[in-house]
Design a protein around this nucleic acid. Sequence first.
DNA 1: TAGATTGTTAATCGATTAACAATC
DNA 2: TAGATTGTTAATCGATTAACAATC
Lengths: 210, 210
Amino acid sequence: MAEKVSDRVIGRLCLYRRILLELAAAGDKNLYSHELAGRAGVTAAQLRRDLMVIGYLGSPSRGYDIKALTESVAAFFEDPEGDNAALVGVGNLGRAILSYFGGRRLRLNIVAGFDSDPRKVDRVIHNCRCYPMEKLCEIINENSISVGVITVPAVDAQAIADTMAEAGVTGIMNFAPVSLKVNRNIYLENIDLALSLEKVAYFARQNQQK
Amino acid sequence: MAEKVSDRVIGRLCLYRRILLELAAAGDKNLYSHELAGRAGVTAAQLRRDLMVIGYLGSPSRGYDIKALTESVAAFFEDPEGDNAALVGVGNLGRAILSYFGGRRLRLNIVAGFDSDPRKVDRVIHNCRCYPMEKLCEIINENSISVGVITVPAVDAQAIADTMAEAGVTGIMNFAPVSLKVNRNIYLENIDLALSLEKVAYFARQNQQK
DNA sequence: TAGATTGTTAATCGATTAACAATC
DNA sequence: TAGATTGTTAATCGATTAACAATC
């Protein structure tokens, strides 16, 4: 529990779990590291090292037990009670994200949306109720929301992040194209779509020249 | 030109350019590394090293010239003629991305959308015309499209990536939650929203327990 | 000059990869 | 046993950070 696990490892564990669930649904019972690694796009050694992190051991003869491993992975990084999230900025991107997660069965629920546009307030969009910005702090506290998703224009993002931090959010997913400054006790994941796309364009061009 | 520049460096350069454009618009003429680094959320040493990569040198007395530096950065990783991209999967997420990039003035244009739903074909959504899937190869060739954006369900993603590769796309931005296998000469950027959000939830919980 | 900033090299850090004895 | 797979340690790799002489 006290172990500090890196960002990368957690990402891969999440990936493994997803694949394990598919395999379990297909009726498979056990598998070897290279099979799971192949599907996840990592090396078998990498996978084995990751599984050691969560303390799950396989057997040289039978590999890994899918059911037990899935449970171990889930126990490692899933809250049995689930987590609540709030999304601020119910624009095109915000709505797409609500719809994306509304359809999935994740342990994490986006339980509230916020927008400064009064026309969106009190509406239910993709199963998520929208509130006015003024209620951000209040709703976060009432629902013990630990995760904030920011889908507002760059100019407003820092203020929202500050408010979220005040209200007790400890993880932020930021889609605004700006470098947010947050306290060290808040995990910040930046998803900068414009930046990513420009990066792809750059490497695509490099690949063409070869 | 032959230099191989890492993924991370390119991402930061893109960030710097964005900030430089803002500063230029505000009328600033020159700045020191720590100013730009502060806004980009990196160390000054990191920034200086990145600028050395593109061969731009500053002066100890005046720092960096904003206008000249902006041009150098742009010359380094922007195609003067611009790049064309295609998006496959005009669902909620796909439409949000079209709207997101349609509003921005990037050098990269999403010139075509594709969907298997006949009701979307031939419509213009956020300034982007939609075509049937069968025309993917043809349109990619006609418009010299080098970048592909995949926003289809996981099960369809690999087939689309393969078709894109055949048609000559050299960079793919994949939003489907699956590990795509692509040829080494194709740059692949995975944006797995569900995975990212679960990662944030995990670290948010870790931060709460402290 | 003095002082802040620069380009550049060396040291550090962390993650990945390779190697190998132990296991079924 | 023989053989494939495992857990675990050591070596490699790459990126970041620190240090410092050179510059204006």
